[in-house]
């Protein structure tokens, strides 16, 4: 069962397109991690999925039904979906009144409200805070009460904007455990945005990557500001830092001289263990900082004057067997590079 189907949805503000998704389907009962840099359109997508914002164009289906962005329809839809803000706010009243707000709107009986509030407060392990003034809570406690306030409404979908970004490690672990628990026990579909690949890999069943408003299949990483300078032999030099650069064919890359952005496809980068280069062009030497399994592939972060992500197949990884701290050489072929101004 598809909870959301998106077809050609775009969102523009002042003529600038900030979100443009051709096609996306999200299955019910699953957890989706939405990765992407700042300004990628993650929050915009979340607000559209939460029926808080209207797309400029395109079609959005919710459980198979086309969504009409009319206030009366949206009111009904919003009762099935809750968006949790990155920095949630609690109304300046008691914790109890905060939790009661959505239940009262849904005309839940008083006794039932009382039962649900006790249940969700137990779930977030904050039963003793029931009658505390909400404005006295810490950041982590606020996040947990906001989570409880959303859970009290038993939504079909729960959309969290950076759920662990603004809390300490202890609260992070509690929130991640809670999200897993409600997905497993209550079958609530969850979509969360994050910058944290580890969190996405650990919590999400599926990871989606947004970059500049588009869904991309590869990592959003490896995009760097650079400076393009002319070189001899019909080449240009693309300097990412003062000491790290790659040479590109001037005929292939017709980027103007000066400041630009370079994207290096992590799946096309070649990794060589040891300190010897293969003689290929654009070889940079560095050390492995991080290794991570991600959807059956291995993500390797190498420091080569800047942090470069390389994605290896499991077969390639088994062959090379790189270890953290190992000195490696990465070679960047021309077809791995995309320049933009």
């Amino acid at each position: 069962m598809k909870v959301y189907s998106i077809h050609n949805v775009s969102k523009s503000i002042n003529g600038r397109t900030i979100l443009d998704i051709d096609h996306l389907e999200l299955e019910a009962g699953r957890i989706y991690g939405l990765l992407g840099p700042n300004g990628a359109g993650k929050t915009t997508l979340l607000n559209i999925l939460g029926f808080l914002d209207q797309p400029t164009s395109g079609r959005l289906n919710f459980f198979g039904k086309a969504v009409r962005f009319h206030e009366t329809d949206l009111l009904l839809l919003r009762k099935e979906v809750v968006v949790l803000d990155q920095y949630p706010v609690l109304f300046t009243t008691s914790v109890y009144n905060n939790l009661e707000f959505g239940l009262k709107i849904r005309k839940v009986e008083r006794a039932e409200r009382e039962r649900v509030i006790d249940e969700v407060l137990d779930l977030v392990d904050m039963a003793s805070f029931k009658h505390e003034p909400a404005h006295n809570l810490s950041g982590g406690e606020t996040q947990r009460i906001a989570l409880a306030r959303a859970l009290a409404l038993s939504p079909m979908v729960f959309l969290c904007d950076e759920p662990t970004a603004s809390v300490d490690i202890e609260n992070q672990a509690a929130i991640v455990a809670l999200l897993k628990q409600i997905n497993e026990n209550k079958k609530i579909s969850i979509v969360f945005t994050t910058h944290d690949r580890l969190l996405a890999a650990g919590l999400a069943h599926h990871t989606l990557v947004l970059n500049e408003g588009h869904l991309v299949s590869t990592s959003y990483e490896n995009t760097f500001p650079c400076r393009i300078e002319p070189e001899k032999d019909k080449q240009v030099r693309c300097s990412i830092t003062e000491s790290a650069w790659i040479f590109l064919s001037a005929t292939r890359f017709k980027s103007p001289i000066g400041k630009a952005r370079v994207f290096i496809d992590p799946e096309k980068i070649e990794l060589h263990t040891g300190e010897t280069t293969t003689g290929a062009a654009n070889c940079l030497q560095g050390k492995i900082l991080q290794l991570m399994e991600e959807s059956g592939r291995i993500r390797v972060v190498v420091t080569v004057g800047f942090l470069l992500t390389v994605i290896l197949t499991r077969g390639k990884y088994n062959f090379l067997r790189p270890g953290i701290g190992d000195t490696v050489v990465v070679s960047i072929p021309q077809d791995a590079v995309t320049l933009s101004s």
């Binding site: 808080l52 206030e71 009111l75 803000d85 949630p88 109304f91 959505g102 709107i105 849904r106 306030r149």
Partner: peptide
């Protein structure tokens, strides 16, 4: 803060 408006809306509040 505009988050109060959006929070109320996402919790199901009408205008």
């Amino acid at each position: 803060d505009d988050r109060y408006r959006r929070t109320a809306m996402t919790l199901g509040a009408n205008r």
